[in-house]
């Protein structure tokens, strides 16, 4: 099978350093002045992108969900709550675009027993804050409440997300979704869906 548009080579040490710098800047963020905020029109598009992203997961439209990400995207679910270096720390998931596609394909085989039936989710994104980095790059932070249901009981997850959003040919896409679970370092149940 063709690797659809993915650039398989971008997870190197320089990439980890860059992503760590960005996550670090989110942790130290103070007030976001009006100068640091994107223009109203861009802000509106970015907010709409986040809500669209949440809705597609909740509707199990995973192929469409993948279309919201760049070719050099990452989905990151750390297993620590201290922003440790991903070059020397294991995460629950640190997927490049190819790994995201593989996980979607695995679920769609109909033989992924951890997702039979699929985990039902309700994503609520709140406290959305936007930070304009350049004309084509916006960082978005939000809190989330994520209710999940499985036949033998569900769990209520929460935390905050950090997104790197990038404008490519006039369309805003997600370059990074980092999901910071409140209890990322605590024992977790079934996380085989996308949070």
């Amino acid at each position: 099978m063709e690797i659809t548009g993915a650039q398989p080579g971008y997870f190197d040490l320089e990439y980890y350093r860059r992503i760590q710098r960005i996550v670090g800047s989110w942790m130290e963020l103070d007030e976001i002045s009006s100068d640091d905020q994107p223009p109203a029109e861009v802000a509106e598009e970015c907010r709409a992108l986040l809500l669209h992203e949440a809705r597609l997961i909740d509707r199990h439209q995973l192929d469409d969900w993948l279309d919201l990400f760049t070719d050099d995207a990452a989905y990151w679910l750390p297993a620590d709550a201290s922003q440790l270096d991903p070059a020397s720390t294991v995460s629950w998931e640190f997927n490049d675009r190819r790994r995201m596609e593989e996980r979607v394909e695995r679920i769609l085989t109909g033989k992924a027993y951890s997702q039979i039936p699929p985990t039902r989710t309700t994503h609520c994104y709140t406290n959305i804050e936007l930070l304009a980095v350049s004309e084509n790059e916006v960082h978005a932070l939000c809190n989330f409440i994520l209710n999940t249901h499985r036949p033998k009981g569900g769990r209520l997850l929460s935390g905050w997300n950090g997104f790197i959003l990038r404008c490519e040919e006039g369309r805003w896409l997600i370059e990074l979704k980092r999901v910071n679970l409140l209890d990322a370092d605590a024992p977790q149940g079934n996380l085989s869906f996308f949070l």
Binding site: S88, T89, E93, S114, I116
Partner: peptide
């Protein structure tokens, strides 16, 4: 060691979850 980190996310993500089920 960076390769080892990503490799150690491999089977838990693709296999352990179904074993657990």
């Amino acid at each position: 060691n960076a390769v080892r980190m990503r490799m150690q996310e491999d089977f838990p993500s693709f296999g352990e979850v179904d074993d657990t089920a």
